[in-house]
């Protein structure tokens, strides 16, 4: 069977499976990214807090998760929640290991990891704000909420966009690691195909191509969004 038959959409081709798996990769990455955005907002807010304990917690969170391999975090989330679920199942008479849902634990794990990166990005965006413009807002009678909504948020969002785009690309690539806990996303599907056809190169290269397609397309989308939001920003920066 040649490559195009192998990856084709006929009955014995793998095209459908690979496409479905690509969809799964995008889905799990997207959920992970969303979780990371929430953690990032919380982390950044904590890092600017007046409470010493919150600032410390934010620093510990980013330091730990940027220094520990993602694979370990995925293991922790998967086997950690599995052991909890197994414990509960044992109460109902089940014996042995019950696996946690891979999609959920995987998305959560890469979400928590990317949240640490996101914290840095959002923090940097707030620090990049022009202090004079924020001060002008205060001088014109804006309360903290209005100031945040009308001045800080729109400007910080603009500064954050490139970094946020980077984090999305990272999450996309990290999602491949979720294959180790059995979620049938692109990487896992390629393993399955490679195993049953003995054509590993074809499958992994196809997977690589599909990843490249996603990162390229989303990179273009972010670039477009950046161009739109850069209106009014100082030229040449």
């Amino acid at each position: 069977m040649d490559y195009f038959q192998l990856m084709g959409f006929s009955a014995d081709g793998w095209g459908h499976d690979m496409l479905r798996a690509t969809g799964m990769t995008v889905a799990v990455a997207f959920i992970g990214f969303a979780v990371g955005l929430i953690f990032g907002c919380l982390g950044a807010a904590a890092s600017f807090s007046n409470a010493h304990a919150l600032r410390l917690a934010a620093a510990a969170y980013t330091t730990a998760l940027r220094g520990i391999p993602d694979l370990l975090v995925i293991y922790l989330f998967y086997f950690g929640s599995s052991s909890v679920i197994s414990g509960i199942a044992a109460l109902f008479g089940s014996q042995g290991f019950v696996g946690a849902p891979a999609f959920l634990t995987g998305a959560l794990a890469i979400g928590v990891v990317s949240g640490a990166n996101q914290t840095q990005v959002l923090r940097g965006a707030v620090l990049a704000l022009n202090k004079g413009e924020v001060e002008a807002g205060r001088a014109y009678g804006m309360g903290p909420l209005l100031l945040f909504r009308r001045i800080i948020l729109p400007q910080a969002a603009r500064y954050a966009l490139p970094g946020v785009g980077n984090v999305w690309q990272l999450v996309m690539k990290e999602s491949a690691l979720i294959s180790v806990i059995g979620l049938v996303e692109l990487m896992r599907q390629a393993q399955v195909g490679a195993g049953s056809t003995r054509q590993p190169f074809s499958f992994y290269l196809t997977a690589a191509g599909l990843y490249l397609l996603i990162t390229f397309a989303s990179g273009q989308a972010f670039r477009l969004a950046e161009a739109r939001t850069m209106r009014g920003l100082r030229r040449g920066i």
């Binding site: 022009n130 413009e133 002008a136 001088a139 209106r231 920003l233």
Partner: peptide
Amino acid sequence: RERAAMVFQSFNLWSHLT
């Protein structure tokens, strides 16, 4: 502050607004 409006040395116009 609404009654005493300030004009700054470095203008401090909000760069994301026209």
